[in-house]
Design a protein around this nucleic acid. Structure first.
Lengths: 124, 124
DNA sequence: CGCCTGTCTTGACGTCCGTCTAAGCAGAGA
DNA sequence: TCTCTGCTTAGACGGACGTCAAGACAGGCG
């Protein structure tokens, strides 16, 4: 355990470059797991997964809450709660402009998660 | 809905090719979200994320429960419960050979998840 | 056959999560 | 300033989750 000085204690979730080697290449340290697991957890709900996709794929990279809410059979506060969860997981960023609130995806952490799940094309 | 015979009602989680376009490219349909969210949810626990990594990065692609359990400060049944969760999410496969049980990662679904999270290198 | 080791299942308990209703706060417009 | 609309926060309730102790099952070995 003292072989390396654990340079991953604080993980920069905004970095564009992957912070960690793929999950299938090297065993994920406990600290890395503790930081990245909440992000996976936030994506572990169908509503939030769709919200994340709607935000990330929106025109101009941002989506208004007024466009997100009517896409589900849920009340406004419930959608707001899910958006807060995504925000606290570091997956999205919120900004109020006038009357409406806009949400924007953070590509950095998405890249981290994708890199972690990357598998060699032919591993057999 | 009658345009195609709904080939995504059941998503082949074992397929090697990605089943869905990236999350940031097109809005994820509700059915896809319902199928893939449980996989993210299963990875949304630090213990399971480490278990998944230990299994996927193990020699020969498989890991014995007897090697996984002592790596955590948890009881055997708890580890077994987490492994069952990973199994039910389709992330790993279990096989008993003699006394010990071996777990093996399913690269297909990992590729699906990684593809879904893929972000363009420069999206601005 | 009987015991031992290793793993899974069952049942229970405390905590967290998803959803709702009701209330609070921030801007825009009259 | 007053009111209206849009979004968030607070509180509550039912259900699911993480954990453990105890028991059940499978396989190997005397």
């Amino acid at each position: 355990m003292s072989k390396q000085v654990a340079p991953l204690t604080v993980i920069d979730l905004n970095a564009d470059a992957p912070c960690c080697p793929p999950l299938a290449q090297r065993r994920v340290p406990a600290e890395t797991a503790a930081v990245l697991a909440p992000a996976f957890k936030a994506l572990g709900d169908p509503v939030r997964l769709q919200l994340m996709s709607m935000i990330a794929s929106a025109e101009g990279g941002e989506a208004c809450v007024c466009d997100l809410t009517p896409a589900f059979d849920l009340t406004g506060p419930t959608i707001s709660h899910h958006l807060k969860t995504l925000r606290e997981a570091g997956l999205v960023d919120a900004e109020r402009r006038g009357t409406w609130v806009y949400y924007r995806a953070r590509p950095g952490i998405l890249r981290q998660l994708a890199a972690l799940l990357t598998v060699e094309p032919a591993e057999s």
